[in-house]
C-alpha cells in the first residue's frame, strides 16, 4: 500500500530506511535527459518540485543520471573556498568538477552520477543543472544559449540577446498561439536526423551553403529546441515541449520592428557571444565552436530589431 506521501507527490519516492540519507528523490528532465535528484530534505524536495514544475517527471526505472545533494551551512568549513568566487568548471580524469562560492559539484562521466554540496537554497542546483546540461550538449552537438524561445506553428524560434535587449518583454508579449519554451536560457540540440549527418560538414560544404531552402527537409532542420525551467524576469518555467528549429534571431533594440539579414560569419560571431559555456577544456571548446558554425550553416540566423511592442510577433511566423 502506498504511503500518503507517495500519493500526494506522484513523481517522488521516499525510502523508509533510517540508516540511509538522500531519502527523497525526484527526476528533473530537461532536453529529454532525466536526472534523479536525491536529497535528505523533504522541504528541499518540495521546493524543487514546485520550482521545476512540469520538468519534474515520472521516475525512470533505469538509465537515469543521478545527483545527490548534501547541505552545508558554510562551504569554507568543508572546502576552505572563497564564498564570493565565480563559477569554474574543470575536466579531470573521468569527471567534471564544478565550483562556485556557494557550491561544489562533481560529476562522474562513467557512471553518470554526481554529488553536489551546497547551501540550502535553489540557486546552486539551478546553476549546476545549467552547467551540466551545457556540458552534455557540448558532447552531443548542441548548446545552451542566453535566449528566449517559443514554438509557433510547429516550429521553434530562438531570440538570443544580452540582458536588456528584450527577451523577457518579447516573451510577455507572445500571442496565445505561441508556446513559450523559456525567457532566459534556451536549449538547442541536434535532431536524430541531424546527429545522423555527422561527421561535421567539410569546409567546402560550408562555403557552398547559403540557406536551407534547397536542402532536403531532414538536413534543413537538423536542430531542435526544448523548453527549459531556467527563467529570467518572467519568473516562470517554460513549457516542457520540443520543436524543430525554424530560425534564430539576434535581438537588438530599435525604433521599429524589422528583420535584417546577417552573413554566416557574422551570425557565428554573434551567436558565440551568447552560448553558455564554462569549461576550460580544449576538446569541449573545439566541439562547441564546430557546433555553432554548423548551426549557422543549417539554421537561418538573422537580426531582429525589436521596438518593444507586440507587433513584433507579426514577423515571427
Amino acid at each position: 500500500m502506498k504511503s500518503l506521501l507517495e500519493i500526494s507527490h506522484p513523481h517522488r519516492f521516499a525510502m523508509r530506511s533510517l540508516t540511509r540519507s538522500f531519502l527523497h528523490g525526484l527526476t528533473i528532465e530537461i532536453g529529454e535527459k532525466p536526472i534523479l535528484v536525491r536529497t535528505d530534505s523533504f522541504d528541499f524536495a518540495n521546493l524543487l518540485e514546485s520550482r521545476y514544475g512540469e520538468f519534474v517527471t515520472e521516475s525512470k526505472p533505469y538509465d537515469v543520471m543521478e545527483l545527490k545533494i548534501e547541505f552545508v551551512k558554510d562551504l569554507r568549513d568543508r572546502f576552505g573556498k572563497d564564498t564570493d568566487r565565480e563559477v569554474s568548471v574543470r575536466v579531470e580524469t573521468g569527471r567534471w568538477v564544478i565550483e562556485r562560492g556557494d557550491f561544489r559539484a562533481e560529476w562522474d562521466l562513467r557512471s553518470n552520477r554526481g554529488c553536489l554540496t551546497q547551501r540550502a537554497n535553489p540557486y546552486a542546483i539551478d546553476a549546476v543543472l545549467r552547467i551540466l546540461h551545457s556540458l552534455f550538449l557540448a558532447r552531443t552537438g548542441g548548446f545552451l544559449v542566453h535566449a528566449a524561445s517559443a514554438v509557433r506553428n510547429g516550429r521553434a524560434f530562438v531570440f538570443a540577446g544580452l540582458s536588456g535587449t528584450g527577451k523577457t518583454t518579447l516573451a510577455r508579449l507572445a500571442p496565445r498561439d505561441v508556446a513559450l519554451l523559456t525567457d532566459e536560457i534556451s536549449y538547442v540540440s541536434p535532431t536524430p536526423e541531424g546527429r545522423g549527418s555527422e561527421p561535421k560538414p567539410s569546409t567546402a560544404r560550408c562555403e557552398s551553403r547559403t540557406g536551407d531552402s534547397d536542402l532536403p527537409e531532414s538536413l534543413a532542420r537538423p536542430f531542435q529546441a526544448f523548453g527549459t525551467p531556467f527563467a529570467g524576469e518572467l519568473a516562470c518555467t517554460g513549457r516542457n515541449v520540443r520543436a524543430p528549429l525554424g530560425s534564430l534571431f539576434l535581438l537588438q533594440q530599435g525604433q521599429e520592428n524589422r528583420i535584417e539579414a546577417l552573413s554566416e560569419a557574422e551570425a557565428a560571431r554573434q551567436l558565440l557571444r551568447h552560448v553558455l559555456f564554462f569549461a576550460r577544456d580544449e576538446e569541449l571548446v573545439r566541439a562547441v565552436f564546430q557546433t555553432v558554425l554548423d548551426f549557422v550553416t543549417h539554421v537561418p540566423v538573422r537580426r531582429l530589431v525589436f521596438a518593444g511592442d507586440a507587433r513584433v510577433w507579426e514577423l515571427i511566423t
Binding site: C206, R286, F289, Q290, L293
Partner: peptide
C-alpha cells in the same frame, strides 16, 4: 579550432 565560413576564416 579553425574553419572557413562564408569566405571568412574563423
Amino acid at each position: 579550432a579553425a574553419r572557413v565560413l562564408g569566405g571568412e576564416m574563423m
